[in-house]
Write a protein that binds this DNA or RNA. Structure first.
Lengths: 332, 332
DNA sequence: CTGTTAGCGCCTTCAG
DNA sequence: CTGAAGGCGCTAACAG
């Protein structure tokens, strides 16, 4: 910086002022240009470390997550947050934490120790969590998780409307009796989607008694098993609504094994819009997308905008329908 | 730190020395203990920023990757690198970059600007890449990519042996004629696995003419289409070797649609051991694992150990077989 | 074995 | 509108 100052014939202070445009100082246009030119020709880059030491903020946002490894969605979330951060000149630092509160706490500590400006706490499956108390010392937003009391603002997928949307994809084209192969009720997402499903049933003037609701565990083979069960009981409906795209894959498998065609014999709707799965199944799976990218982006943007305190306890982002080729009107 | 020094009745220097055990200084046991106690009771944490400013190393390793969003494997790689880094007290900073060299360059610049100590350049699909020249100014290792001239050391999956392993899972139990549904030859992995396949054929004293090799594009529907092709030509073999687990999923679908059972009628082997897919297909898919976690771990470990210069240009990590339930001996 | 001293590169009050 | 001076918290010669 001294070099730049010398080259521009000004003091280091002046250089600092022009580099921090927002410093409240007014620098003559001519001087500013001289400095900028010097910066340019010398290829000068401000030293972040020194700057951070002085200002004690680091232009980094921490991203803590459990189980990044297994979820295909984690990537989308990170990408969203990453892009939002970069756009503001910040960098995203990703840290993996276990599911238990102790390692979570330790990971956040690690981040705090590195002086991150804010943190995104991303949870894999939507659920209520207990956050370590050290989140208090830095602006934090929760992603896909929530806490009681709304102490920390959270972004969540709007699963209730999502469930409604998924069901509507079937009811809207005339199905009147479907099987909903969902996940365990222990999961918040399952319950929310069920609520949405019930609303769709009601909105279409149908009876819940005509619908079959079966609980699985969101794995491929669970979709497979449940469909076989349906077949064994001679209760194969004209349409199957799946808890997620993986279960839908199992449904496809069981259906084709039984000689039933999608969508001619049975319509199928998934949930998640899992990359490289939903779009490339045969036929391509109609589904509902969880807005992971948008959630990541939203979280980073709020943090960077400051004043996370002002946020509502929970913000729900819409799960849009992704119609493809696995739905058709029922045969009559 | 001054507080600690005061509490321990020593100078700041002494505190610094005991905190940097490796500083070459010898501190009396008693003094060290006094300092450590003071640190403990005061809850003192060294300021990384100041330390980094002084030492100009930051205990962070940068992880640059293209397209983290879509690959389910990216997570495993990041996790491996992350854990190795944490074990040494370093943090992993993940940055997303596009596929073109300009944004790649910019991302690395960003990292350099943040004074990372080293960088891992992770490429999605194994391929030859052109690296920006700024990789020269920091220890770098390539993951899943390689450069001509071996200027940068690379870790790669041993796809040749992997292809051999996959084929052996079929030939070893007695299959003599299989269909290999692979990817486009433009891909390095495809070519390597093909080589492995040929070696397996030769090693088992079989003829390549008895094998069918079909090229797809690694998508689910490509496995589906190719299998239908096989069936249409009346050339369904006793076993199908798939380019990846997703193609195997398509194969499952086409097979069950045709009334053929896995593995009773046709044995199927995948590749990748994709989480939440291979293990939960029905029946569970026998496959070969790409050691993403290990590759990430290896890269971080080498970087942290220093002297990346000494590494061979390419290090291949083994792809182990993961036998499950989709293979059985051929019917006679 | 321990303390003194001089910065690392930047920002920021306070005077001009 | 610009400059001088002090310090963020730590490390590393260099003395003792």
């Amino acid at each position: 910086m001294a070099d730049v100052a010398r080259a521009a014939g000004v003091s280091g202070t002046t250089v600092s002022f022009v580099l921090n445009e927002n410093s409240g100082q007014v620098i003559s246009l001519e001087t500013r240009q001289r400095v900028l030119d010097a910066v340019e020709t010398l290829g000068y880059r401000r030293n972040y470390l020194a700057r951070s030491l002085r200002t004690s903020h680091t232009a980094t946002v921490g991203f803590v997550t459990d189980e990044i490894a297994i979820e295909p969605y984690a990537g989308a979330t990170i990408l969203g947050a990453h892009e939002a951060a970069l756009a503001q000149g910040s960098l995203l630092v990703v840290v993996n934490a276990g599911r238990d509160i102790r390692t979570l706490r330790r990971s956040i500590d690690e981040l705090l120790h590195r002086h991150v400006d804010s943190v995104i706490l991303a949870i894999l499956g939507t659920r209520r969590i207990t956050v370590p108390d050290n989140t208090k010392s830095v602006p934090t937003v929760l992603l896909n998780g929530y806490v009681m009391g709304g102490l920390l603002p959270a972004v969540l997928p709007d699963e209730t409307t999502g469930g409604r949307t998924a069901a509507d994809m079937l009811f809207d084209v005339g199905h009147r009796s479907v099987a909903f192969l969902t996940g365990p009720t222990a999961s918040w997402a399952t319950r929310a989607r069920l609520t949405g499903f019930r609303r769709a049933v009601a909105a279409h003037g149908l009876s819940l008694d005509d619908q079959t609701i079966l609980h699985g565990d969101y794995r491929i083979d669970s979709g497979y098993d449940l469909t076989q069960l349906l077949i064994a009981h001679g209760r194969l409906p004209s349409a199957i609504l799946c808890g997620n795209d993986r279960m839908a894959t199992g449904v496809y498998l069981a259906l084709s094994e039984a000689g039933a065609r999608v969508p001619d014999d049975v319509s199928v709707v998934g949930y998640d819009d899992q990359p490289q799965l939903a779009d490339s199944l045969h036929p391509a799976l109609s589904t509902v997308r969880i807005p992971y990218y948008q959630m990541g982006r939203w979280a980073a943007e709020q943090l960077l905008a400051g004043d996370v305190q002002m946020l509502p306890p929970r913000t729900y982002l819409r799960c849009p329908p992704v119609p493809r080729s696995s739905v058709s009107p029922p045969r009559r």
